[in-house]
Design a binder for these strands. Sequence first.
DNA 1: CTTTGGATCGTCT
DNA 2: GACGATCCAAAGG
Length: 195
Amino acid sequence: MSLGHLTTPERSGLEGSVVAVAPQLLNAVLVVGDRSGRIVEVEAYGAAEDPASHAHRRRTARNASMFGPPGTLYVYRSYGLHWCANVVCGPEGEAAAVLVRAVAPLTGLDGMRRDRPRARRDRDLADGPGKLCAALGVTGADDGSDLLDVDARVRLVRDGVAPPDRPVVTTRVGISRGVDLPWRFCVPAHVGSAR
DNA sequence: CTTTGGATCGTCT
DNA sequence: GACGATCCAAAGG
């Protein structure tokens, strides 16, 4: 499988409120070298007003890249062992980001299978925030890089597939505060295939 | 298919 | 010193 015509999203398109921007990232493509995957599940994390956000309290060494310009990649370590990737949104200094929770593998499947030996089926390669980072090869070394830079190692692109007209909207998972906010968005065809 | 519990360590209190 | 924006294997239906 190969990708079609690729375009880089406008940075201004990532500058709005994170809840508005998050569903617009669905069906966009993350590219790392010869590996790529289509974003099928995301969650919005706000700034100080969002009790579940890493930016809820203050700027620290870990969340520093959340305060960068829209389009910045924010990678953090979860539970001591997994990497998780976010697209920084909102105006610079606002510290909001969209957590990428699942991608559908498009290219570079062989490499993904090598780096995800536990995945029994290809559909399990990247159906979780930690899994997609392992499958694509995203680590803390990529934290703070610019996803919209054509020369960046990790890139966010469009291949002509628009976001879904009616994404599936649910509450966020794996958190203990802000649990009632409907800030999780999925591509309808992929609901259930994403943990 | 669903549920449950253990692993594991960086980060912030 | 406590707690995760998680993953996986095992066990039960």
